[in-house]
């Protein structure tokens, strides 16, 4: 199954901005996060196809996954 992963802000460093990636069908979001070596504690929001998503949610062919780091300064 192919999905598109979009990384925002600091998550791009040493990784990528947007990339099509291949995973076995039914892979949960958390697996992608682990594979990309993104510490879960740094994640602010996960979006799957423009909807708020949880790490346990399973991915499907053609999904768009976006990962945002926590930004909290003022």
């Amino acid at each position: 199954m192919q999905i598109t992963v979009k990384l925002f802000a600091t998550f791009r460093a040493g990784r990528f901005a947007v990339e099509p990636r291949t995973y076995p069908p039914g892979t949960p979001i958390v697996e992608v996060i682990r594979e990309l070596d993104i510490p879960e504690a740094q994640i602010g929001m996960i979006m799957l196809n423009n909807r708020h998503a949880e790490p346990e949610q399973e991915l499907h062919e053609g999904d768009n996954l976006s990962l945002f780091p926590l930004v909290g300064g003022g």
């Binding site: 802000a9 600091t10 879960e40 504690a41 740094q42 994640i43 602010g44 929001m45 996960i46 708020h52 790490p55 780091p69 926590l70 930004v71 909290g72 300064g73």
Partner: peptide
């Protein structure tokens, strides 16, 4: 926006 937040600050 902060649904995954557990503790601490962000990228700042």
């Amino acid at each position: 926006l902060y649904s995954r937040w557990v503790e601490g600050k962000g990228v700042e």
